[in-house]
Design a protein around this nucleic acid. Structure first.
Lengths: 219, 219
DNA sequence: GTCTATACTTTGATAGAC
DNA sequence: GTCTATCAAAGTATAGAC
């Protein structure tokens, strides 16, 4: 991932139908959002001050209010960007498989897309993961619903693989789902673009999720 | 887990060599700590106010300073309780296995102990997981070292299983370790004592980690 | 041990000049 | 669009009575 921020910018433009010729306001608005994502991720919701965000982009705190109405608006934009972005990427990846794809193909594709997009969204995803529980209840509600809908998509993925007889019969699918997402999201905490290539990490995770850590000792 | 708090109390007493006859100060001190753990976990470090903690135990904010010198002291105690508690529990569980135990026995035992103790420490573990990155650097240093030492223990567990030829040869052990811990710790986010029994969850996690989600399709 | 009172700092947000 | 100036509210922490 050499270009992290640009992808997020693209997402914002696409989802808001903004003309390609970005104006000054859009540039500032997006720089503020990126700075906010990083600081929210590092210090939590209450620990993030408008002054700290402003400092990071060379503005005065008051200037942020030209772009965002409040701190709540800011965190909402950060979380929304990550949640919608990841969800869209994964849906798209799975939907673009041929009809003949097996359950395992679909799950592996979802694993790859989830890991890739979560790491691409970097600070946005991290902020989303870390502060969703800290924000005011009326702001949280909508995003929790989004996250739950995404979780539901994974459950269906697992259910259809089980119907196809591919999945083990002795595991609880709800539990398997949180297990998978928990493991994938934990990559956010340590992944560094300088390390192992993203596709390598993704295929290792696929292997671990699909077949486990032990050699063929299945009884 | 019917008795969550008492276990934590026991841990505190054991680790600090306090006489069994608990005095008033100890009771208050521990109630403050428990309340702080819960609020830190919910609202993050900066989002937790001394007033909120005090309210929860029916004290005035100023009274907390009789038991803890500062907010930093308070979060340090919360995180330390969880980190030391979980680490001790897992070390103990693995150490108490017979010398003949296989690598898989040892890993399964560690999985069970980790999951059990993490869920037993509940709010303490949750606070530790969520705010470790939000606290002042000089407070964080010591706890990051503790956490890394614990991570190292897991790496050794995996390495010795690989030497024994039990583990797959095609997985990166560092990656497998974070994968496992990430998945186990994610249980903190959704586990409720009213749900499935703890030992059932633990054995499902063992199965998932050890053998993966798919039926025997190994090529 | 816990309280009331309070000093001092930082925060989110607004008003209005440029 | 961004700035300076400013405010009311809320934060950590201390002092001293009880």
């Amino acid at each position: 991932m050499i270009r992290t921020e640009p992808s997020v910018a693209d997402h914002l433009q696409n989802s808001q139908k903004i003309p390609a010729r970005t104006r000054k306001a859009d540039i500032s608005r997006e720089r503020v959002l990126g700075a906010a994502a990083k600081i929210f991720a590092e210090r939590g919701y209450a620990g993030t001050t408008m002054r700290a965000v402003a400092d990071r982009v060379g503005l005065q705190a008051a200037s942020i209010y030209y772009h965002y109405r409040s701190k709540e608006d800011l965190i909402e934009a950060v979380i929304g960007t990550a949640l919608v972005g990841v969800s869209q990427a994964v849906h798209l990846a799975v939907a673009s498989l041929p009809a003949s794809a097996s359950g395992r193909d679909r799950i592996d594709s979802a694993i790859f897309a989830h890991l890739t997009s979560v790491l691409t969204f970097g600070d946005y995803a991290l902020a989303s993961r870390r502060v969703l529980g800290q924000i005011p209840a009326h702001v949280r509600r909508k995003h929790v619903a989004l996250r739950d809908a995404y979780g539901n998509f994974w459950l269906e993925l697992l259910e259809s693989a089980r119907v196809g007889g591919e999945l083990r019969g002795d595991i609880d699918l709800h539990l398997a789902r949180t297990f998978i997402l928990g493991a994938l999201n934990s990559a956010l905490e340590w992944y560094k673009p300088q390390g192992k290539a993203l596709h390598e990490i993704a295929s290792q995770f696929s292997l671990l999720i699909d077949e486990g850590i032990f050699a063929q000792t299945r009884k």
